[in-house]
């Protein structure tokens, strides 16, 4: 209640401040030069780590939406974050430094990957955000109010046909992302995360107290072997901007042996590739499921299945990275 009252009182003040401050350096509508872009990306990546905030954000998918309460406290070296789902099943996430604990009635994952364990909104940018400039260019496209704050709107435009348009609404004073959206090839909304209520600045640590019995989840930090055992399967270099992040052996329903799962990422989206023995019963070619595009292909004795929140061209491009070398 206190927080709400404070919020009400603060918002007009911050709003007025925001308007009085000079606008960002880059003019609206032009592609941002690289040095400025790097500076902006680093600021956007640092802000959610450095700023203490608490609020509620909405995550909108094409078919449903969820509200999540989030609290982040940064005080010197103390860095903690708590999230709680407000819609649907009760889920909770607590991060103290690098240690993540979860409460998930449906069963929590056994292990989280270091690359992704702390990449939840508004902290979805990678720690080395310059890598994004390999696949995207940045443009300031306008200004808009979000959760009572004035924001600058930046588009991360794909440089090729292999990715989607991402848009970020950034609070100019702190660099915190207040709203983030991904659009499909027809500019349709694929994914949206937006604060509906937000308070930045000092946050009471008591708000970090979990409301469910949490279970610690180990976060994998060791670099995973990314070499596929069968050298006859040639794996070409991923498209510009994408990197092979990890490779794991994953037990799968309907398979006696684990399936090899390779995960690629370009800093904003990930592409999964599954490698398994060829099965003639499986339908080959493109398919889709909501915002995810898939491509299945036979490569020598293997079945390669690619999927991700990427255009169909990308799924196909990744499928063709895999080539069989006849002896």
């Amino acid at each position: 209640m206190m927080a709400l009252a404070g919020m009400k009182w603060c918002a007009p003040l911050v709003l007025a401040l925001g308007m009085a401050l000079p606008a960002a350096a880059a003019p609206v509508g032009e592609v941002m030069p690289t040095p400025e872009a790097v500076q902006l990306l680093n600021r956007m990546a640092r802000a959610p780590q450095d700023v203490s905030y608490q609020g509620v954000y909405i995550h909108q998918f094409p078919d449903h939406m969820e509200a999540v309460r989030v609290v982040h406290v940064r005080d010197g070296s103390f860095d903690a974050e708590r999230r709680e789902s407000l819609d649907g099943s009760a889920r909770e996430y607590l991060r103290l430094g690098d240690q993540v604990s979860l409460y998930m009635p449906d069963g929590a994952p056994n292990v989280l990957d270091r690359h992704h364990a702390n990449k939840l909104f508004p902290r979805q940018l990678p720690d080395q955000p310059e890598q994004l400039l390999a696949g995207y260019q940045i443009r300031l496209v306008g200004r808009e109010r979000v959760a009572g704050f004035d924001t600058d709107i930046y588009d991360l435009e794909p440089k090729d046909k292999l990715r989607f348009l991402h848009r970020f609404w950034v609070h100019p004073d702190t660099g915190l992302t207040l709203k983030a959206a991904m659009f499909g090839t027809k500019r349709e909304l694929i994914d949206l995360q937006v604060f509906s209520q937000l308070q930045m600045g000092a946050v009471n640590r008591r708000l970090l107290k979990p409301s469910h019995p949490l279970k610690p989840v180990p976060v994998e930090a060791n670099p995973v072997n990314t070499v596929f055992a069968d050298r006859q399967l040639e794996i070409r270099v991923a498209p510009q901007g994408f990197q092979l992040l990890r490779q794991i052996q994953r037990p799968m329903p309907g398979h006696d042996k684990p399936v090899t799962h390779q995960l690629y990422g370009d800093g904003l989206v990930t592409v999964s590739v599954f490698l398994e023995p060829f099965d003639s019963k499986v339908a080959l070619g493109p398919s889709d499921q909501g915002m995810v595009n898939l491509y299945t292909r036979q490569v020598g004795p293997y079945l390669v299945t690619v999927l991700g929140e990427v255009p169909p061209e990308t799924a196909f491009a990744f499928a063709t990275l895999y080539q069989w070398r006849a002896r």
């Binding site: 989280l112 992704h116 364990a117 799968m252 309907g254 799962h261 990930t270 398919s287 999927l307």
Partner: peptide, 24 residues
């Protein structure tokens, strides 16, 4: 094809989402 009614692809979708790290 629609992957929704294919258990094999559904399992892959789930695995992909886990690795996305978005627990929510």
């Amino acid at each position: 094809a629609q992957a929704g009614n294919n258990p094999r692809l559904r399992a892959y979708l789930a695995a992909h989402r886990i690795d996305n790290g978005n627990v929510f």
